[in-house]
Every structure is written in C-alpha cells, then in structure tokens.
Design a binder for these strands. Structure first.
Lengths: 153, 153
DNA sequence: ATTAATGCAAAAGTTTTGCATCGTT
DNA sequence: AACGATGCAAAACTTTTGCATTAAT
C-alpha cells in the first residue's frame, strides 16, 4: 500500500534541472505551467499558441526542447495517434497505464483502462514467445451523434 | 460459407485500372510485383530500393503514387508504427483483421488476432458511448532472446 | 491523338539543429 | 564569469505536388 503523496510536478522539474546542472528559465517555467494546466492532449503547435498568449516571443524550438525535457523528467508522455502530430499528455506517475479512444467527428480523446485486455495482451505475447515492454491501443470511432461537443464535420 | 477462390492481385489491379480509365504502366507493374512478392511490411523507401534493382530510374514519387493506388484497390494497407515511416502490408481481402507484435531487438513484426480482445474493445466503446470504426493495437516487446534471427543491438 | 503517368525538383508539414546572443547559476 | 538556453533560420525527414515530357490506351 503506497501512501498517496501528491507530488508537485513543478518540484520534480526543479529537482531534475538542478540535479543535472541545467537551468530553470522563464520560458521553461511558462511552458511547463501551460502544460500542467492543460487538461488535454496538446501538440507542440497548440502549446506554442497558449504559451505565446503570455510571451509572444517564445519559439517553437524552445517548446519542442522543453517538451523533450519534461519527457525526460517523467512528467510528459508523447503519443502519436493516427493523424500526424505527436501530442503530449501529463504523465501521472504511479497511476495505471491507460489506452485511448478517439472520436473521428470531434477529435475528443477519452482515456480508459481495462485489466482484462491487459491480461490478454500478456497472454498472447507469451504464447508468441515475447516479453511485452510496451503497447499501444487506440480505438477510433464516433461518439454519440447528437450531443457531440465540437463536431468538425 | 464463402468459397475460397484465390484472387490474383494482378488481376484486381488490372481491373481497377481499366475500370477507372487509368493506365497500367511498366512502373506500376514493377512496383506492384515487388509489393506482392515482399513477405514483409515495407516502407516506401524500402520499396524504392527493391524496385530500383530492376529499373534504376524509377522515382520515389511514383512509388508513393503507386502505393496509394494499391491502397485504393484494396490491395495494400498502410500502417504507422511507433517509428516514423508508414509501412504497407498486402491486404488479404476476406481474411480477418489482425494486430501486430513488434520485437524491439530485431524489428520482426508478427501478426495476431484475438477474438476476445476484439469483443472487449467493442464492449468498452459501447460503454463510453462510441461506435468503433477502426482500431489499432500494437505490442512492443522482445522475442525469445537466444534465437532471435537478426538482432540489432 | 488523347490523356494519364512519369521524373524531377520544389513544396509542405513536423521536428531537429547550428550558431550567435542572452540569461541563470 | 561560466556555460546552458534561447530565437532564428536553416536543415532533416517523410510525403505530396506542379509541370514539362513520356507513354499507354
């Protein structure tokens, strides 16, 4: 039974940075703040847009570099879905791995987890002589037609 | 019960082309031949390499255009795995959909299908108010260490 | 003879990198 | 003061496209 101590991601970043002789710049703090605040899976472009609302001078390169840094800290997790961008989601340390279901109409992404599927994946891999180190599962579909929040089509 | 008539992919391509007022060029035939012969999931670059063994003048653009054509015929199916390229696999018409398990050591890709997982995916989607139109599942792992055919690392 | 397909080079889209300059430690 | 980070522009990388030319029907 692990005690559920809330970890402050700002602190994690701060520690990582100082532990590695890196520097905590205004840009990094801003980008991290936007990232932590986002409730969604954002692409680098989307992050840039939000970050530029605060500081119009921040460059896309810095966003990419900072997202890479956040990934190294274990704070961000990159995902490549069927479209072309990589999106980043806040990594929730101890929490369980999850998969995604994506609405083709409105692009919303819902996370889910199913223990039974996880077990079947392990079983299949074992049968094929594999040891699973990672997996990815995405369902693409259409959410209930009428109340779809922000339909594209 | 569908009778298992072997369909010749060359014929499928021929029919599609003539039915649509397109033309069956030397390049298309060569690229299609290489594609049908490949036992593996090939990227456009890899196809180009093989095709150029026969005709050094064929362009990458034509490979891309032909792969798109083959996809439209229902003969090829594009997949995007965790690395960056799209790879194409021969579509096996009536056969059932399948998923992939990929060895991180030797890059081999094995296909599998599990009815139980398919059912669970449907169940989960329904619970979340989605109708599934597509899905993708990939397991990444390591195949049995000792007899791995072409280990990279 | 039509008109689609080719090859080339240029463009597009995402991510990375070199470099001079700036800012944190 | 030292040296890591930034912004910019250019490069890398995969895929697409415009266009003059070639070739299948």
């Amino acid at each position: 039974m692990t005690s559920d101590i809330e970890i402050d991601p700002r602190q994690v970043l701060k520690d990582y940075v100082s532990k590695n002789g890196l520097k905590l710049t205004r840009q990094r703090e801003l980008i991290a703040e936007v990232f932590f605040a986002a409730g969604a899976h954002l692409s680098a472009e989307e992050m840039l847009e939000r970050v530029r609302a605060e500081d119009a001078n921040i460059s896309l390169a810095t966003v990419y570099r900072t997202l890479k840094l956040l990934t190294q800290c274990g704070l961000a997790e990159p995902h490549k879905f069927a479209d072309n961008h990589t999106v980043y989601e806040p990594a929730r340390g101890d929490e369980e791995h999850h998969d995604h279901i994506i609405c083709k109409d409105c692009d919303q992404i819902i996370e889910f987890f199913d223990e039974r599927i996880e077990r079947l994946q392990e079983e299949i891999a074992k049968r094929l002589g594999f040891e699973v180190v990672d997996h990815r599962m995405e369902l693409y579909g259409r959410c209930s037609k009428t109340d779809c929040p922000n339909k594209k089509h």
